[in-house]
């Protein structure tokens, strides 16, 4: 592997003197400690401040459980939808050329930089009682905002680009010779996709799904606007954290928050593996 050779040769001539190296490492580490490790430690520190029983009680509480359930449902709906979208969009964008491609990519990216407040609010503008469809929905007794569908919609919006963003560059880089070869050999379109394309981008997909899932479970701003905050019904885990915090129930708030931090850590672990696999795949190609 060329990577190994690189590192060996770089050791002597190309690297900085040891003291500069350690100075840079020290600066980078103190920066990361201050900004990343400390907040993480604080979450767990505060969560277990009053001991394990308080921690477990906080998590077993019915409102907490219902918020966990809602968060899981939301993720279970949004992630597959955005996954399907991400794969189709990546296929169209990466494998074909057409006018307006750059605009399309920018539009797909858009939700990523729209303020969460706006992301939630636009659904209120459409489905709210004063909005376009509100009166009609009211008549037919269909609830969208301030109910689970609204929360799912807002989450769909904020997690919209994640899978597509991950896959488009990957599939572009892989070109389309393999698919073309498969087709020439008589495979159908779907066969080609499932047997040729999919295995190639498998880890990219997993990577995108993980990020999408983490954001879906952790979104606060957008969901807060469309939730209605009904205890035990339309509170997701991040909203429940805020509620507990506002009830001076700090240990419980951090206990529930630590669930999300756990999720973040698991996400990071899976993501590291996925990343490693993607890199391997690249090197093998």
């Amino acid at each position: 592997m060329s990577a190994l050779n690189k590192k060996n040769s770089s050791n002597r001539s190309q690297t900085e003197p040891a003291f500069v190296r350690w100075l840079l490492i020290a600066i980078a580490m103190s920066f990361l400690t201050l900004f990343l490790a400390l907040p993480l430690a604080a979450v767990f520190g505060q969560a277990f401040e009053k001991g394990l029983t308080v921690y477990l009680d906080a998590i077993r509480e019915p409102d907490t459980l219902s918020s966990i359930k809602l968060t899981l449902i939301t993720a279970a709906v949004t992630v597959p939808l955005n996954l399907f979208f991400g794969v189709t969009a990546a296929w169209a964008i990466a494998k074909f050329s057409f006018p307006g491609k750059n605009l399309l990519i920018t539009l797909i990216d858009l939700p990523f930089s729209v303020s969460p407040v706006i992301s939630g609010f636009i659904y209120v503008l459409i489905f709210g009682l004063q909005g376009w469809l509100g009166p009609w929905l009211q008549e037919h007794d269909i609830k969208i905002v301030f109910a689970v569908p609204g929360i799912i919609l807002a989450t769909l919006f904020v997690t919209f680009p994640f899978v597509a963003r991950e896959l488009i560059p990957l599939m572009e880089a892989q070109g389309k010779e393999e698919e073309e070869a498969a087709l020439v050999l008589g495979a159908t379109g779907l066969q080609t996709f499932f047997l040729v394309t999919l295995p190639n981008v498998k880890w990219g997909i997993i990577y995108g799904v993980i990020l999408c899932n983490a954001r879906a479970m952790g979104e606060f701003g957008a969901v807060s606007v469309v939730s209605g905050h009904i205890r035990g019904m339309t509170n997701t885990v991040p909203l429940h954290v805020e509620i507990l915090y506002n009830e001076y129930n700090y240990s419980a708030a951090f206990a529930v928050a630590s669930l999300l931090a756990f999720l973040a850590l698991i996400t990071l672990a899976v993501k590291s593996v996925a990343e490693w696999k993607v890199r391997q795949q690249f090197e093998n190609n």
Binding site: G128, L129, G134, L137, V145, F146, G228, I230
Partner: peptide
């Protein structure tokens, strides 16, 4: 009785926008 709490103005707005 289900409860929803928040800032008074925000809550009023939610009701206006269809929180039942």
């Amino acid at each position: 009785v289900k409860q929803s709490h928040g800032g008074s103005g925000k809550q009023a707005r939610s009701v206006i926008d269809g929180l039942e």
